[in-house]
Nucleic acid binder design. Structure first.
Lengths: 200, 200
DNA sequence: GTCTATACGGAGATAGAC
DNA sequence: GTCTATCTCCGTATAGAC
């Protein structure tokens, strides 16, 4: 029984569409990106696009889940990294890394966050990713705190949530352009300052 | 020559529409808020709405400019506040205050930022406000630095821009709900930590 | 699998009576 | 000034030939 579809080609076609769409979603947002624009960017007809995706929203979600980062592996390694505070900082930088990679990535992530406010399906996906990230932050934060490398005033759960928010700030900063590596340095300094009580 | 329109009533009508629309823009975003939704929320017909605004976008911009904060007055006062570092922190909190006031305010501000990425007119408005805020931050930051209350490593211009980004983080944090006043405390701690070099 | 052509619905905006 | 009714366009998605 010969397969009628080549799964490799099929995946490649999907990927090509997703890559084209991702740029447009980042630049113009979900609603202002028309399927016609996507078709033109991908160099294909609507019929073809809808052969690979059931609709614009499913394409958007496919884009989001494709770029989903695997934090598990990184986390596994950082659990053994010494000192614990450095491991935590490294994790924060890992999470913020996409923001400095390219302005469009920042825009896409922020667009996703906004959509999550308004769409249950998108919200569910991002929630999952966020929970994973926060759990990692909390774990590393707790470890650093136990090692006495973090000020006692910083509570694990709230602190982790706030760190996630600060990572978000790096994405916000990505909108204005400017030097990406400088932004990463600012973030690093900020997180250190937050975790270690500054002398007053 | 009697005026045919009562300017007070006219302004009140505009205001009523803007108030109704602001909530919807915050909740659903610009594109997903239909004029029909606005009409229903405001309890009026499309004809009436278009009597007061030339279009949905002009209404959106009216909402943004109406909620525009007057930083000048606050800044004037903070210039004389001692110590300088406290003045700077107070200014940061002033800028972040709307974010803790109500979740919808956070959403509206973020929506505006996203629209600014895609619309020249919106961008121009926000740019103006942002520039004003950054100028204020830079001024107070410089003053605090000259008083030796801020670590020398923090450069005035970049530092001010980064502080503005951190204020943005407070708005981002507003999306997730949680205790608003706690978020303000986190921000305060973060900014202090950033400005004062923590002992390593 | 891919195209062209088009159906369908909805949203912004207007017309014109009152 | 305000309403009802409606126009027009455009965007999503589909139909059906190749």
């Amino acid at each position: 029984m010969a397969r009628t579809v080549d799964p490799v080609k099929h995946a490649a076609s999907r990927r090509h569409i997703m890559d084209s769409a991702a740029v447009l979603f980042a630049e113009h947002g979900l609603e202002r990106t028309t399927t016609a624009m996507i078709c033109e960017a991908a160099g294909m007809s609507p019929g073809r696009l809808y052969h690979y995706f059931t609709g614009k929203k499913s394409l958007f979600i496919a884009v989001l889940t494709a770029d989903r980062r695997e934090t598990g592996q990184v986390l596994e390694e950082l659990r053994r990294t010494e000192p614990p505070l450095e491991a935590l900082l490294a994790f924060v930088e890992h999470l913020a890394a996409p923001a400095v990679a390219h302005p469009l990535v920042s825009q896409l992530v922020l667009e996703a966050m906004m959509q999550a406010q308004r769409d249950e399906e998108v919200r569910a996906i991002l929630e999952e990713v966020d929970a994973e990230e926060r759990a990692g932050l909390e774990e590393l934060l707790t470890r650093a705190a136990e090692a006495g490398e973090v000020d006692a005033e910083v509570e694990a759960r709230d602190g982790a949530a706030w760190l996630a928010t600060l990572v978000g700030a790096a994405y916000l900063g990505g909108l204005d352009g400017g030097d990406p590596s400088a932004r990463l340095a600012q973030l690093r300094r900020t997180v250190r300052g937050y975790l270690l009580l500054p002398r007053v």
